[in-house]
Amino acid sequence: MAEKKKTWKEIPIGGKIIEAGNAEKYNTGSWRTFRPEKNEKKCINCLFCWIYCPDSSIKVEDGKMIGFDYEHCKGCGICAAICPVKCIDMKKEVK
């Protein structure tokens, strides 16, 4: 993330953020040292992980947990800790 920062002439005045939702561009996925991985067979789609994830990084479709948003998942491990059937493992990140 060696992005060149803007000068005072290039940013909106007053500390305003005028581009809605631009936090999405912040790739917090790069912070991970452990990554969550799911054992498809064990998952019961209770969605506890979706509720507890502090970074909204659990992907859900049609009421089913379908995976992780690795762009934003920081690897905190809360999903793995909260999972009632222990279907999420925290694996060492390989970079």
Binding site: T7, I11, G14, G15, K16, I17
Partner: peptide, 15 residues
């Protein structure tokens, strides 16, 4: 738009 977000070492000075 967002008014009044946290503005730390990286941009406070420019504002």
């Amino acid at each position: 738009v967002t008014y009044g977000p946290l503005d730390l070492q990286d941009y406070y000075f420019e504002h």
